[in-house]
Design a binder for these strands. Structure first.
Lengths: 106, 106
DNA sequence: TTGACATGCAACCAAATGGTTGCATATTAA
DNA sequence: TTAATATGCAACCATTTGGTTGCATGTCAA
């Protein structure tokens, strides 16, 4: 589960919308997810495949339907491992910015 | 400062590496940033422009050099406004996943 | 003032991306 | 069994993306 795949998956607004939709109602089928979207089913399928590859969505075949479940773990890992690093330097970076702005407009 | 620009900016590993570099040493010039990168200066310039557009990096012209400063605010906002939403549904989503796996492999 | 250095701009290119259409397959229900 | 439904696969296309090269501009230092 590469972090790169997660970042790339999150880069597209349609895919974030799909995650939102699953966040609102988990376990939706492909067709259910398509109803909110303004594109063909095949386009949605491709987006879901990318989300699956990033391990952000897990699926289960249930007869002729396919249920989609949100996996919150990768998002959580990004929050902890990646964003956390910047949080640790946040005050320092902000004071750098402040100093810069003060020098810029005296 | 659209959140979409931030997500797209973060999607590229080179740009995340640039943010890492600025996190390690803030205020680097273009040439300094280029030294760590395995591509031409012009390519780095383009990446930095995207980071600037997402407001993740702010610059200051200092004579013939250009200093680059990390702006942690957009990352912080993503953490709070976007990731927070999924955090709130995290336990629910995880139990959904658990149930799904139990049904799948009995 | 002149040469070296730091950056900017623009054209160009290959590959990836996001979308489409058309058809195939598999499952359910009448 | 057959028709409708849910999804899968593949070819195709336009646009975006990430990179290059070549040259221009602006600033510092000898």
């Amino acid at each position: 589960m590469s972090m790169d795949a997660v970042f790339r998956a999150l880069a597209d607004p349609t895919r974030r919308q799909l995650l939102d939709s699953l966040c609102a109602r988990n376990g939706q089928t492909l067709n259910a997810l398509c109803e909110h979207m303004d594109m063909t089913r095949q386009a949605v399928t491709k987006h879901l495949a990318i989300l699956e590859e990033a391990n952000l969505v897990t699926t289960m075949r249930r007869g002729r339907e396919k249920e989609h479940y949100l996996n919150p773990v990768p998002i959580n890992e990004i929050a902890e491992r990646w964003i956390g690093k910047f949080e640790r330097h946040r005050l320092k970076a902000l004071s750098d910015l402040k100093q810069r702005l003060e020098r810029e407009e005296p």
